[in-house]
Amino acid sequence: MIKVLIIEDDPMVAQLNSYYLDQVGGFRLVDTAGSAADALQILREKKVDLILLDIFMPGINGLEFLSQLRKKEIESDVIIVSASTDSQSIRKALQYGAVDYLIKPFTYERFRDALNDYKKRELLMQNKEKLNQKDLDKQIFYKEEEEVIDKKAELLPKGINRDTLKLVWDHILKTKGESFTTEEMAQSVGISRVSMRKYITFLCDQEVLITEISYGAVGRPVNCHRLNQLKVKSFKTYLKDL
């Protein structure tokens, strides 16, 4: 288990970070500290692998604390968790060896990804005495992953986000061939009708949706869409390529 210390002067934020930490496997909270002085005392008494560190704290701020850690040769890794967005603070955090930087308010998904990335790096370091360039690029610097994402993005037209497209597609599959309007699908997915219209147009261009005009008893005709079952398999393959 990776032992974690949370340094955060706001008790509610510390509690939230602790809760998030519990949701990610492979980590155990050792303690929490509301100041740099308290944190140094904890580090004298307990082994800590990873520190989740706020910058704005009473007394010594997080960056000064991080500098002290390095001078004292304390080898605990640090992920900054802060509302500070100025480039100077971020630059200093990286220069002092922070392995990641989370800007408040952040999502649980970003928090989870930061911890999982750290866990992967630690496992790699522990399981291999020597690393080659491929290991470093893929597992540490994520260069290959970034190149793949860039190439995938090129397959989509401007304004179409890969993750949102998959989310829309999953909701459309749930209709099981029943017709729906753009507004209905926008409400189901949780995005604006204008945004949904772009995704519906894209899916129609791919011929994976069939559009029909519905004439109600009152009001104007409405465009309704439904899955083209003949194209579902080929579009699933397309999504895998993304």
Rank of each mutant, 00 (worst) to 15 (best):
S67M: 09
D100P: 09
L209C: 05
S84D: 10
L242T: 05
A39I: 02
L230H: 11
E45C: 10
I140N: 01
M185L: 15
L165S: 10
V78Q: 01
C224P: 00
G216T: 12
S76N: 04
S188G: 04
V78C: 07
I6G: 11
V48M: 12
G62A: 11
E154S: 12
K151S: 15
S214N: 13
V4L: 11
F65S: 05
D22Q: 15
G219R: 02
L131E: 04
F202V: 08
T32D: 09
N116E: 15
M185C: 07
F56K: 14
T85K: 12
P58M: 08
D100F: 01
A39Y: 01
A186P: 01
F56R: 13
L167I: 03
K104T: 08
L29K: 13
Q23R: 13
G190N: 03
S35Y: 02
K3T: 15
T107C: 03
L53K: 03
R70H: 08
Y20V: 05
Y199M: 03
N223K: 15
D113E: 14
A98T: 06
R70E: 13
V24R: 04
G62E: 09
Y142K: 14
D49R: 00
L156A: 06
K174Y: 02
T107L: 14
G216E: 11
K151T: 14
V148H: 11
L173I: 02
F235L: 09
L40I: 07
L16G: 04
E64M: 10
V24G: 04
G34I: 00
D117C: 03
Q229V: 10
S67F: 13
A39M: 06
Q41T: 12
Q187C: 09
C204L: 13
N17V: 08
S195D: 02
L43R: 09
